[in-house]
């Protein structure tokens, strides 16, 4: 049975139900545009549970708005994309909590012009841990990578190693 809880206009859009994928280890979403509905992505992420996806070890979300911002900056589209990104961020937080840091979560984000980024006002809050830098908004960078690469067995909390990979393109 197909997941259809994000049926949008026309009823042709679906999402994945990852509870049916017991062997899944890695998921990689790349979004090369800004605007429109990406709600099916967090919908798919919402089906990732420790009980049904025991082997999942890495999730990557790559958001590259740079190539399309010059052509699509309509406020309504930004709001749609922004709500999708907020939901993605919330799902990452949930996954981090439920999987107790056992999943490597990576966000690669190219926010484009600062004004567009401010409009989105998206925050990813999974950067925490002993000695780690805590930053949830990176308006000065054009490209970043946030990676949870290590879990401390002592306190059972993931240690976040912040990697500000910056490409000035």
């Amino acid at each position: 049975m197909l997941s259809s809880n994000v049926d949008g206009v026309g009823g042709s859009e679906r999402s994945f139900d990852f509870s049916k994928f017991p062997t899944l280890q890695e998921v990689d979403f790349g979004v090369g545009w800004l605007g429109g509905d990406i709600l099916w992505i967090p919908t798919a992420l919402s089906t990732l549970k420790p009980a049904t996806s025991p082997r999942i070890s890495a999730i990557r979300f790559d958001f590259d708005s740079d190539s399309s911002t010059s052509r699509s900056t309509e406020a309504s589209l930004l709001i749609d994309a922004g709500s999708g990104l907020r939901w993605v961020a919330n799902e990452f937080t949930r996954i981090e909590r439920e999987f107790e840091g056992a999943v490597n979560l990576t966000v690669v984000r190219n926010p484009g012009p600062k004004a567009v980024f401010d409009t989105l006002n998206v925050r990813f809050r999974f950067c925490r841990g002993n000695g780690a830098r805590r930053t949830d908004r990176f308006t000065s960078c054009r490209y970043f990578r946030i990676t949870l690469v290590e879990m401390s067995s002592a306190d059972a909390h993931p240690v976040c190693l912040f990697q500000p990979v910056i490409f000035w393109r």
Partner: peptide, 29 residues
């Protein structure tokens, strides 16, 4: 797409999904 991916549900280890409204492949792809 959902049907195709779900047809591999029992064996799938890695799923990569790129999307671009303008038909230009995402840089990571």
């Amino acid at each position: 797409t959902v049907r195709l991916v779900e047809a591999c549900a029992k064996t799938l280890v890695k799923l990569s999904y790129g999307i671009s409204v303008y038909g230009e492949p995402h840089s990571s792809f």
